[in-house]
Write a protein that binds this DNA or RNA. Structure first.
Lengths: 261, 261
DNA sequence: CACGTCACCTGGCTCAAGCCAGTTTGACAC
DNA sequence: GTGTCAAACTGGCTTGAGCCAGGTGACGTG
């Protein structure tokens, strides 16, 4: 300690107060999306607090997803990303034939964003998660199709599709990224599996560190974790897809009859 | 500074390293749910770091939802909460008549947890959010039924139901918590609105500070934000409910036909 | 004009110290 | 035995210092 001053107990020195002040200014529109907020050092001076305290206030706003810090550049108010909505209709035949882009591309364009998909296709063995949903034995041969979906160059969701190998064998499903004009469900149709019912299991959680890095998810943004199962007219599951979606830019939207079909 | 020692740059002094070490011990089962992990001071000593650094490591684990800190007592490994699943069936007539508890109570009991609901019923005016979903004018008279759902005494979700006043007038819906044996949808049925379709708009986000406090949501746990609309056989919406659910203990589970009914 | 380089910003992280407020525990008085 | 109260723990928060690394722009040199 420099001197033995009893530390005058700073006037307000509360990181929550600083956070609140900033939050208010942001929500009031004094700082707009993309604007830079004062630096940690400036905030500290302004509030008569230590830099660490200002830093803690900023950490709180980051956790809330209000701001985003860029090393060496500053802290900026987050853009409220545009929402992309997905629901039951993305699987309908109408959607399928109306667009070469698939449901993701169609929604992206509807939101004025440029879609782009990266695919990696491999053969694999069914993990228990997948096997139970497909009604097959764990370890059975499957195809694994990992798709990264980008809007305006930003990754917004990943979907990993699994299907039994005996269904996809000798079709583009087994090894090609190009699903033709009818998309992936057109290919399954051609093999006799018309998507008729879907099951969607939805939860949310914080991304793992790895997911946060690969999807460039800022602090304070959760992900939607969605297991989708495609079921054919014979009530047999033929495909499951595990989606992980940025929750700040994705909403799910379902309408359905209440009673059993 | 006490002296002008050049600070020997701690051996590892990385909060991420400490966090990783702890995380590994937790996932490996060395610390089990409910166990107390070493105190901030002990961790710091153990790793030859400053207490602040150990503290930062713990903060990371809290954000990840792995541990929970109790002031004055210590830091404990979180119990993995049991999941409650909700889906389309909770609105079905079968569910309605089978249980006096409603879908929440039924699911809680299925999970071996004791359900409990707190209700506050008021008359209000429709906010734009609500009005557009109900297809009425903003500001129109509505009933507002706020329900807090508890499992084993812990609040796990809130649902605020809104319905037009002209529908609920002179029924228990307008002012009573007791919905009778058929539950809330039984009451709507009696007024000519049989729930036939539902629309569910789902997203996820971090809880606000206030929500986190009222629902006792630990750090690092997001919430599922669900707008539910009840639609009758004439395709008219008669009720909307805004749910906020702890995402670490709630999953949504829908199965539905792909095509329009 | 192009290109480097360097000062000066930014946030990221750490340290060592200290005060405060909850919680537990055990010694001591009654 | 029962109650009380203080000591010794816990986490919560703050200070002010310092080093590091990324980013930017002015300035100077070729």
């Amino acid at each position: 300690m420099t001197t033995s001053t009893p530390r005058p107990r700073a006037s307000l020195g509360d990181y929550r107060a600083i956070a609140r002040a900033l939050r208010d200014e942001i929500t009031a529109g004094r700082y707009r999306p993309g604007d830079q907020i004062p630096s940690e050092r400036a905030l500290a001076a302004e509030h008569g607090a230590a830099r660490n305290t200002a830093r803690e206030a900023i950490a709180e706003l980051r956790r809330e997803g209000l701001v985003i810090a860029k090393h060496g550049r500053g802290v900026f108010v987050r853009d409220r990303p545009r929402w992309m909505r997905f629901g039951r209709r993305r699987y309908s035949a109408a959607m399928r034939s109306s667009s070469e882009l698939g449901p993701f591309g169609a929604e992206a364009i509807a939101q004025g964003r440029a879609p782009h998909v990266d695919s990696t296709i491999t053969r694999a063995e069914a993990a228990p998660d997948v096997a139970t949903r497909l009604g097959i034995e764990p370890g059975a041969a499957i195809v694994r199709r990992e798709n990264w979906y980008f809007a305006d160059g930003e990754p917004v969701q990943v979907g990993i599709t699994f299907a039994p190998w005996h269904i996809v064998e000798d079709t583009p499903l087994a090894d090609s990224a190009d699903m033709g004009p009818e998309g992936i469900y057109g290919q399954f149709s051609a093999r006799g599996h018309v998507i008729t019912y879907i099951r969607e299991e939805i939860s949310a959680r914080m991304p793992s560190r790895e997911e946060a890095e690969r999807m460039q998810i800022p602090d304070g943004v959760p992900v939607i974790d969605l297991w989708h199962t495609g079921i054919d007219a014979a009530r047999l599951p033929f495909e499951v897809t595990h989606f992980v979606m940025r929750a700040d830019s994705t909403a799910l939207d379902y309408d359905m009859p209440v009673e059993e079909q």
